[in-house]
Design a protein around this nucleic acid. Structure first.
Lengths: 240, 240
DNA sequence: AAGTGGTCTAGACCACTTC
DNA sequence: AAGTGGTCTAGACCACTTC
């Protein structure tokens, strides 16, 4: 664990267990430097992390203060975060839900031209294609349509689709996932989606269309996931 | 403009006008230090900005490389960014659209309990409430329901609702907006929304429910904006 | 072995707030 | 005037990649 991570985690813990109360002033940057025996830039890193994650607000000239933690009402079944791309399994296991999948299609195809383009492969290159529905405690949450370049990923099997594909890529193949470009939309459920997701035709779905990149900058997936509107929320902190 | 911003902007420009091509290696950190006569940490800041904005990928031990810029298909009329909260007007003027508003309600009320809670005001404190539809080139894009604490904002008038309320808060009142907590959902249009947004009842809307904060950490707005699914996309870059 | 990015030190200097 | 966070310097040291 890096030094700035230790500091940020400590402060986060103090806020979460109430040792630091909303609107309370944190120790000054200089004090924290002395406290942890680190340099100013390291404390700043920790502060930046806390600001980005919505825990504190810094005001030049006066100090850094604990924000009143707010959670917007979470009626729906399932909550995702848009800060980091974690994949469905990682997000849901946290809440000790039982995540399962129904696989509707798993094949090797030559993807449509615009998808080949996004994946940076030739029009006649092969890609895995799969369609699966993700369920949390047996309730269908989302349907995914995913393309992954064949050449990049040796040995993807149907069985992997029942668990976390990202875990397979990371732990078994040793790929390093680095970033995702996302477009977020609201779309109506098609007839087949309505059936597979146990909802109505035309029901609002939250669509996340994304291209995922390895740290090498190479795209490793094109994916469209459509989440049932009334069962899924995406949470997010944004800076002005 | 800060030094690291200058460096980041230079490199961004080189990428955008093609001087730096996809997959090309950037100068090393040390080279950039010499080139700009700055210290390493300043170059790192610039690199971090470029990584966060999806322009380059850094690989320890080998270098920093230009990413193939991708833009996901943008069928819809209007595109927003989820990186920074800019407000409707700022996002849309960029595309040289004509942004207008229809105001359906503007009043002072005591907000519902859960909203008062989120705004950190007493249950019987007053707040401005407004409901307006935002149009881009006369096409309705979104309907907003917003509460703002009365005490915080002197002199909000109906006329301000026809332009950018954020601009009023910033430039006229001198408030500094700092961050937004957002929940993103797909919801069906109600009857009145369908009529005001010129769409069907039950049509998918992209809802952004958000609490906005001042740099002092005080909430200044609770807002729910519902964007017509087929006319609006939110774009976003996420790190793994 | 040489080259690359990543974290960190110990401070300087500045912008801004508070009193 | 004193206190606070924000940017930056000039380097050290390290982890990792490439050859």
């Amino acid at each position: 664990m890096l030094k700035y991570e230790v500091i940020a985690a400590d402060i986060q813990k103090s806020i979460e267990d109430g040792a630091l109360k909303p609107n309370e002033k944190l120790p000054t940057v200089v004090e924290l430097c002395e406290l942890y025996g680190v340099s100013k830039i390291t404390v700043r890193r920790a502060m930046e992390w806390l600001v980005e994650n919505g825990l504190v607000a810094s005001r030049r000239g006066s100090g850094t203060f604990v924000k009143k933690p707010i959670t917007l009402p979470e009626n729906p079944l399932v909550t995702g975060s848009n800060e980091r791309a974690e994949g469905f399994s990682a997000q849901h296991y946290k809440h000790s839900e039982r995540v399962t999948s129904k696989v509707y299609d798993f094949s090797v195809v030559t993807p449509p031209a615009h998808i080949a383009e996004l994946l940076n492969i030739e029009p006649d290159d092969f890609a895995y294609y799969h369609c699966r529905v993700r369920l949390s405690d047996d309730v269908p949450i989302a349907i995914e349509y995913t393309y992954m370049p064949l050449d990049l990923i040796p040995g993807l099997k149907r069985q992997h689709l029942y668990g976390s594909v990202y875990r397979y890529l990371r732990d078994e193949i040793g790929l390093t996932l680095s970033s995702f470009h996302r477009a977020i939309r609201a779309v109506p459920a098609t007839e087949s989606e309505a059936e597979r997701l146990d909802t109505e035709v035309g029901a609002p779905l939250l669509e996340l269309e994304q291209v995922g990149y390895l740290d090498s900058g190479i795209p490793f997936e094109y994916s469209r996931s459509r989440n049932v509107g009334e069962r899924y929320v995406l949470n997010n902190i944004t800076l002005a």
